[in-house]
C-alpha cells in the first residue's frame, strides 16, 4: 500500500513542477520525476509478498515464489522511452534558449497560458 502512495505522490510532485514552475529546465525535470513515479507504480503492481526476482538461477527457485515479470519488462521499455523524451526535450530547451536568450516561460511570449 505504502508503495502505491509513494509512487503516486512522486507523480503528483512531478506534475506540480510541470504546472507551476517557470523555468523550462525545471519543467523537464518534472517530466522526468513523473516518469520515475510511473515506473515505481508499475513495479509495485507486480510485487508479490515474500517472492524473489523472476530469474531461475538455481534449482531451488520455483515459479510460484516469483514476482510478476510482465510489469518489469514493460518498465524496461518505459525507461528507455522516458530517456528519449528527456533527451529531445532538453534539445528543444537548448534551441529555445538560443532563440530567446532566456529559460523563463513568461518571457517566451508564445508559450503563455
Amino acid at each position: 500500500m505504502l508503495y502505491y502512495i509513494g509512487a503516486i505522490s512522486l507523480i503528483l510532485i512531478g506534475l506540480y513542477a510541470v504546472l507551476v514552475k517557470k523555468n523550462l529546465l525545471k519543467i523537464v525535470i518534472g517530466l522526468a520525476i513523473v516518469d520515475s513515479g510511473l515506473n515505481l507504480l508499475f513495479i509495485a503492481i507486480g510485487y508479490v509478498k515474500n517472492a524473489t526476482a523472476p530469474i531461475f538461477s538455481s534449482e531451488s527457485l520455483t515459479a510460484d515464489k516469483m514476482v510478476d515479470p510482465v510489469p518489469q519488462s514493460l518498465v524496461l521499455t518505459a525507461i528507455v522511452i522516458g530517456l528519449a523524451v528527456t533527451a529531445v526535450a532538453l534539445g528543444l530547451v537548448i534551441r529555445l534558449y538560443d532563440h530567446h536568450k532566456t529559460l523563463d516561460i513568461n518571457k517566451i511570449r508564445q508559450l503563455k497560458w
Partner: peptide
C-alpha cells in the same frame, strides 16, 4: 492535483497489494 491524486489513489488502493495474480505472467514464469 489534489482531485486527480484522490481519484488516482482510490483506484490503486482498491487493488490488492502483494498478492499472487493468475494471468499472462504465470504462463511466462
Amino acid at each position: 492535483l489534489g482531485i486527480f491524486g484522490y481519484y488516482f489513489a482510490s483506484i490503486f488502493l482498491s487493488l490488492p497489494f502483494g498478492e499472487k495474480r493468475e494471468g499472462v505472467g504465470k504462463h511466462y514464469l
